[in-house]
């Protein structure tokens, strides 16, 4: 059987919020390493990959690798029934067709148990190679969210140009143009407020803002976001979940016809 427990439901609620607008159905793969999920969005333009490592759970038992096929909307709805500071247990039998979600209030006076029907899903998996990127930008996640939202008012795409010391986000549209320049921080007291720009070679790529705006639903998971960019390969937008894992989004660049 599979059974795991997290001290706070909040982190799993935020993880579901980060996924449910992008993907409708997905498979949680459960192994001794933890929980993981990989899925393309319905138009196959982007890919999301989630890892929640065993070490981040209070308890984690997995007798046999299992795949939990879930409707994301349903799982998110059930997760919303947990209070942020409830502890949460997920449980499933090896050959079962149900996932139990048990929420316990911090004082132990209320326990809620929900059972969710699992689905038999055959979802295409892609091999994501480990690779070095030409540029890696780290910045406050709220700032990145704001930039994507603001540029959506101008155009459908953002052009990201990274040079030593800074990055330009620009958009063009029928009503006009916009350019937002973010400079690398020279001195920061709080790591969460820092902007760092690592450049091996300058890059200039264009991405659909529609998907970046979906990705920024993960903002509450982490104070910082990292953007890894290389010419002609998907952009990686990564949110670390403290002590537990990460949510990573991959977005194919727009290319010249």
């Amino acid at each position: 059987m599979f059974e795991c427990r997290l001290p706070k439901a909040e982190v799993l609620k935020k993880t579901m919020d980060a996924l449910k607008d992008l993907i409708k159905e997905a498979v949680w793969d459960v192994s001794a390493q933890g929980l993981s999920l990989q899925s393309m969005d319905s138009s196959h333009v982007s890919l999301v990959q989630v890892t929640l490592r065993t070490e981040g759970f209070d308890t984690f038992r997995c007798d046999k690798n299992i795949a939990l096929g879930v409707n994301m909307d349903t799982m998110q709805k059930l997760m919303k029934c947990a209070s942020n500071d409830d502890n949460i247990t997920l449980k499933s039998e090896d050959n079962g067709d149900l996932l139990s979600l048990i929420f316990e209030s911090p004082n132990g006076e209320k326990t809620s148990e929900y059972e969710m029907k699992l689905m038999d899903l055959d979802i295409e998996q892609l091999g994501i190679p480990d690779q070095e990127y030409s540029c890696t930008i780290k910045m406050p996640s709220g700032e990145f969210q704001r930039i994507c939202r603001d540029l959506s008012n101008i155009g459908e795409s953002v052009n990201i140009t990274v040079v030593k010391g800074g990055v330009d986000f620009s958009a063009k549209g029928d009503i006009g143009n916009a350019k937002i320049h973010v400079t690398e921080s020279s001195n920061v007291d709080n790591e969460k407020d820092a902007v760092t720009v690592e450049v091996n070679e300058p890059v200039n790529l264009t991405f659909a803002l529609r998907y970046l705006n979906f990705f920024t639903k993960a903002t509450p998971l982490s104070g910082q976001v990292s953007l890894s960019i290389s010419p002609d390969v998907p952009l990686v937008v990564a949110y670390e979940i403290e002590d537990l894992g990460h949510v990573k989004y991959f977005l194919a660049p727009k290319i010249e016809n």
Binding site: M40, H44, V45, S46, L47, E124, Q125, L126, G127, I128, P129, S157, T206, A208, V233, P234, F250, L251, A252, P253, K254, I255, E256, N257
Partner: peptide, 14 residues
């Protein structure tokens, strides 16, 4: 004009 390729064209199917 630019076009939007599929993400699956960048990664190997497993």
């Amino acid at each position: 004009p630019k076009h939007q390729p599929s993400i699956s064209s960048f990664f190997m199917k497993t």
